[in-house]
Computed example of a mutant assay.
Amino acid sequence: MCTTKHKQKQLHQSQSNGCFSSTLTADDSIEGWREEAIAGGSLKHVDLQNGTNGWASPPGELFNLRGPNYFAKKVKIPSGEWLMNPAGVDWLRSNAKLDHVLARPDNRVMNALRNSKNSEKSSKAFIVAINLQVPGREHYSAVFYFSSKVDESLDSNSLFYQFINGSDAFRNSRFKIVNKIVKGPWIVKATVGNHSACLLGKALNCYYHRGPNYLEIDVDIGSSAIASAILKLALGCVTAVTVDMGFLVEGQKEEELPERLFGAVRICQMEMSSATFVDGVAPTSKVLPMSSGGESECDDN
């Protein structure tokens, strides 16, 4: 088992190779709870360029988003540094659809945050989790966790703040994914390429769960026949596919540009069998989280 110091060294090395978009150093970079969350996921953190059956953090420059003059000139520019930090990935299998995973008392990321030794800093952390719910005979969830940066609070005037605290209708109109097949069969590249940018809140049923220090977005991929067909194609050769996914709030006005990713993840040739089983019925919890449900368009914008 790696010591904490050794883990910090490994994570710092990964960061210098482009795995982390933040510029924090090994001494204060990975808050203890977030280091635990990254290292303990059911899908392991791997090298950005050569890793397999795991996840990595692609830098923002790999994603082209709407630039400051987009509405006049339709110009996209490489995204800058993410708004949040990576906080781990889970690949889960269950006997029922997994909804609102952050409210489960057995959620390892929230437990790592609650049990943090550096309670003063961790108490200020805000988590955004994206739970992609994969349909099938068994239920799968790919959960991507992102956390606010150390000593940074969310700007109350920002578009991201509006998204976190806005209505479900606003979220559905702005929640966007940009994706790219980095490695994979040509048919998967061609198919996904036609849906390289998508307003998930309009294309799929999305359910938003707002807790005191988190926002979880449950994305029901099975709610769209097109999305299910694309996913089925990708899963058929999943061990040969590496895909980058970036998440952002779409800018729809000049003053909301340029767009910025709040998080991104690279899934590297994942194996279905690597999923961890989680009982669909959550253990009894005394927590009474706030939650709300959303309603259910993909394009190249």
Rank of each mutant, 00 (worst) to 15 (best):
T242G: 14
A227H: 07
V192D: 01
S196T: 07
I230H: 05
T191Y: 00
L233H: 07
I221G: 10
C237E: 08
A234H: 08
Y208W: 11
H195M: 08
Y208R: 03
V219L: 04
D220H: 09
K202C: 03
P185S: 03
V192P: 01
D218F: 04
V243S: 09
N205D: 09
M245V: 14
G193W: 06
M245R: 13
Y214K: 03
P212T: 08
S223D: 06
V192K: 00
L199W: 00
G193P: 02
I187M: 08
S228I: 10
G222P: 09
I187Q: 08
D244E: 12
Y207M: 05
Y208T: 09
V188M: 08
G236P: 09
A227G: 07
L199G: 01
T239A: 14
I217D: 03
G193A: 04
L215Q: 06
H209W: 07
P185M: 02
Y214V: 07
I187S: 06
I221K: 11
L233E: 12
A227P: 03
A197I: 09
I217S: 12
S228V: 10
V238M: 15
Y214T: 09
H209E: 03
L235W: 12
A240V: 12
D244L: 12
I187D: 07
V188D: 05
V192C: 01
C198I: 08
I217C: 08
L199I: 13
L200W: 00
N194E: 06
Y208Q: 04
A240M: 14
G236V: 14
